[in-house]
Simulated scan of single mutants.
Amino acid sequence: MSAAPEYELEEQKYLWPIPPEGGWTADDLDRIPGLPPHTELIDGTLVFMSPQTAFHARTMRLLENALWEQAPDHLDVIREMTIKLDNRNRPEPDVLVFSAKANTGPKQTWFRPEDIVLAVEVVSPDSEDRDREVKPRKYAAAGVKYFWRVEESDGLPVVYTYELDPATRSYVPTGLQRENLSVEYPFVIAIDLTAINRRPGAH
């Protein structure tokens, strides 16, 4: 009987970027080679995204498509683009509504907070603290007027809506939306949240 074949595992080496003194800056995200997709910068620290769940991906698709269809001409919609809040913070909301004038071309990688009308975060298990506490606080401080936080309940999105109080630079809750989202600001929006798993036009 011949001996069982021997397999040699090849060691893989991962080179992680070493932060400079004082941490990374917002512009470093465009310069650091080999960063994983959708890397964020929070307080000068790189934040790497975990693999998406089906709920997360389908919710982003539903919201992006609905917002894109209903947004007025002076606004644009995109998903998974960063906002350069300041030199040490460049988070990546899941969906953004922004001024169409801020769309500078195919090589654009970030937006200014003053260009953002609505930021949407779909909460994932690994991002609960960031999406519920850290990022909303930073968006509000930077002047982003509207914010939605989306949670999962029995497989469907539940949307918590907020509006900025300019006096305190903090968000005020304006509603909790289940099954059918209906708001008048930042523009009139109606979204069937139960359509998360349906193709457009299907019933």
Score class of each variant (00 low, 15 high):
Pro19Ile: 03
Pro19Gly: 04
Pro20Phe: 11
Pro20Trp: 11
Pro20Lys: 01
Glu21His: 07
Glu21Val: 09
Gly22Asn: 08
Gly23Phe: 06
Gly23Ser: 05
Gly23Val: 01
Gly23Glu: 01
Trp24Gly: 00
Trp24Thr: 04
Trp24Asp: 01
Trp24Val: 01
Thr25Met: 11
Ala26Glu: 05
Ala26Cys: 02
Ala26Met: 02
Ala26Val: 00
Ala26Thr: 02
Ala26Leu: 02
Ala26His: 02
Ala26Tyr: 01
Asp27Trp: 00
Asp27Tyr: 01
Asp27Gln: 12
Asp27Arg: 13
Asp28Pro: 00
Asp28Gly: 00
Leu29Gly: 03
Asp30Ala: 14
Asp30Met: 06
Asp30Ser: 13
Asp30Gln: 09
Asp30Asn: 13
Arg31Asn: 10
Arg31Gly: 00
Arg31Trp: 07
Arg31His: 12
Arg31Ala: 08
Ile32His: 08
Ile32Val: 15
Ile32Leu: 11
Pro33Thr: 05
Pro33Val: 04
Pro33Asn: 07
Gly34Glu: 12
Gly34Trp: 06
Gly34Tyr: 09
Gly34Cys: 08
Gly34His: 14
Gly34Ser: 14
Leu35Trp: 03
Leu35Ala: 11
Leu35Lys: 08
Pro36Met: 04
Pro36Asp: 02
Pro36Gly: 03
Pro36Val: 05
Pro36Arg: 04
Pro37Gly: 02
Pro37Ile: 06
Pro37Glu: 15
His38Glu: 13
His38Gly: 03
Thr39Ser: 15
Thr39Asn: 13
Thr39Glu: 14
Thr39Met: 13
Thr39Tyr: 15
Glu40Lys: 02
Glu40Gly: 01
Glu40Pro: 00
Glu40Thr: 01
Leu41Gln: 04
Leu41Phe: 08
Asp43Arg: 13
Asp43Met: 09
Asp43Phe: 01
Gly44Asp: 06
Gly44Pro: 12
Gly44Ala: 09
Gly44Cys: 10
Thr45Phe: 05
Thr45Asp: 10
Thr45Ser: 15
Thr45Cys: 14
Thr45Trp: 03
Leu46Ala: 10
Leu46Phe: 08
Leu46Met: 09
Val47Ala: 09
Val47His: 12
Met49Lys: 15
Met49Arg: 15
Ser50Cys: 13
Ser50Val: 04
Ser50Phe: 08
Pro51Phe: 10
Pro51His: 10
Pro51Ala: 05
